[in-house]
Design a protein around this nucleic acid. Structure first.
Lengths: 349, 349
DNA sequence: CTGAAAGCGCTAACAA
DNA sequence: TTGTTAGCGCTTTCAG
């Protein structure tokens, strides 16, 4: 994706790289034969194939992928886009997103694809398609849909092969893969209720589809236990630890009582624990805390964090497979992956 | 980087994408003119340039980057490689590496470059050059040199434009950018000595050049304070939290006394705090702890972690600029960036 | 089994 | 100012 006028072409004494023609000349065959040999075509004699492969290897020659792609009119790279919030730029530092990135990298590498990574302003999500528009990538993976559902729909309608990590939403014309957020929310709240918690704070920004679904699960669990939902206890905090600290401090200082917090990410939950501690409240004795994601250090936090585990490594595979299917022309329905409550000390009373 | 025999070309009813010829036909000019217009050449009349740009935009046409690159014989993508240890695969989950990735992404995006991300087995580091060999990327950034100094030298000698985040090493034929590890190590240890610590455990694998330099700084600080270095207190723990827990537990159980730990990453430090706590030791009262990196949550840990801050965001810029200079044919000397001790509660007695 | 030749989508001399 | 033309490095009919 070229975002600027090209700089001067950096013309240095052009390093002379070998090309197929060189190999052909040295081997005393035509480039066609070299091409066939190097691509393992059956219609070249085993002997020459062997000979040419060895020659190429010994000369450290590799096929130029750009030229190959141009000729073949396809390519093997996938663009992975991490939207960021212009104000905070925060969430790319969220370990969860980065874990997803790692998972995608593995899945793509295993299948022989390259991964192009870029960050785009969430307010300009159309740019996510750029790598596809320019023919740089065969498809794009969007990590998180934010509040840009409509823009994503438009991209998909424009024909961009697209898979989004996020929630499944009613009028959705693209393929999403995501955790079962409603269940996740319900599991967390049920668990807190079972621990005898009476007043549970929900922390998360329901503007984001995934969070909205978790909130729905949360409320449902309350309803099933015949508890009222209290708007005061619903903190619409975005995925931003600083905001989490501010919001929770305000709540505490307002004198509102509560004995549990269900935060929509582990990062938020850690911030919550920190604030509680600063206010002299002990976790889990005074306030039980549950997070979301189960990132690496949730288990190493103090206290170890109860959380809803998202299936990150299978997610990478699911996303990549879905994208490949879409590129192959299939219609792939959205997919919801199971989540699981991991109980640790932070919520045990 | 194609790592496998190509799968069947996914031949679906080829989505008909516009090309320059289409725009030319519609606009009633030649492709040359379109090319010039779209590239902002001054030798096309402002009027046609305007007209063609608008036509292209309205038709949602974008120049095919692959074809352009082939013709121009260069490209604007940089390959960023994160080596991984085959056994643990751990360190890609290290927030520090991921922060570096983010920093590089920003620096590259700002300059209009694409970022190709891949993970390679540290034991097969030659593969890091693949994206360059195949012409996919104009250069490569290696995050961490591990114990593969020689292989990296060979890549550089082979002509691969290369910048490595890591230590500066005597016989080095490639460009490295890294923090001032010796100073970092010294700062940490001096600080612990000032806090009155008597027996400081050093945790880190000196097989890695960066760690070796931190160890040197550590020893130097001890020497300046006229303390002996005690081999028993030097734990050769790799960047792996589990290993850290195991190693420190063993040390404690061996009955060796100590009142401080200097760990070579924040992740290790957090593991250390956890183990100490499990053994009934309080941080910092019984044992002071200092980490390295100053990743996001070091300040939110419990207790907040004293650590040596690495200049991640400037590092991304330095690395990218160095790589671009190298691609432009310059000889770029290795660069060492200043580090800084950030004192927090974990080390205050 | 191998080679000659056309062309993937674009840019840049060179001509007009 | 604009068009014509020759490739960039490769794959693949189509002939031999």
């Amino acid at each position: 994706m070229t975002h600027q006028p090209d700089p001067p072409p950096a013309e240095r004494p052009e390093r002379q790289r070998l090309q197929m023609a060189d190999i052909a000349r040295i081997a005393g065959v035509s480039v066609a034969t070299v091409s066939r040999a190097l691509n393992g075509s059956a219609e070249v004699s085993a002997a020459t194939r062997q000979r040419i492969s060895e020659l190429a290897r010994s000369l450290n020659y590799t096929i130029n992928v750009g030229a190959k792609n141009l000729r073949l009119r396809h390519n093997k790279t996938v663009s992975v886009v991490i939207p960021y919030d212009r104000r905070s730029r925060q969430h790319v530092s969220d370990p969860f997103f980065l874990a997803m990135l790692g998972s995608l990298a593995d899945a793509l590498t295993d299948r022989g694809f390259d991964m192009l990574v870029s960050r785009v302003d969430a307010d300009r999500l159309e740019l996510a398609a750029q790598a596809w528009d320019t023919g740089t990538a065969m498809g794009v993976v969007l990590i998180g849909q934010w509040h840009r559902h409509e823009q994503i729909n438009q991209m998909a309608e424009r024909g961009v092969p697209l898979v989004v990590w996020g929630a499944q939403i009613p009028v959705q014309r693209y393929c999403s893969v995501g955790g079962d957020n409603a269940t996740g929310g319900a599991l967390a709240t049920q668990h807190l209720l079972e621990q005898g918690c009476q007043r549970i704070v929900f922390m998360g920004d329901p503007d984001l589809p995934e969070v909205a679904q978790r909130l729905r699960g949360h409320r449902q669990a309350l309803a099933e236990a015949e508890r009222e939902t209290e708007p005061t206890l619903e903190l619409h905090t975005p995925f931003d630890a600083n905001q989490a600290r501010a919001d929770l401090s305000r709540l505490i200082e307002s004198g509102t009582g509560f004995d549990a917090v269900f935060a929509c990410s582990d990062v938020l939950a850690m911030a919550v624990v920190q604030v509680l501690r600063a206010h002299g409240k002990e976790v889990p004795r005074d306030v039980a805390v549950v997070g979301y994601d189960d990132i690496e250090w949730a288990s190493h936090a103090y206290p170890p964090l109860t959380t809803v585990r998202q299936p990150v490594s299978v997610a990478g595979i699911e996303i990549v497979d879905a994208l490949l299917a879409i590129v192959a022309g299939e219609v792939v329905p959205p997919r919801t992956l199971p989540v699981e409550l991991v109980v640790r000390r932070s919520s045990l009373r």
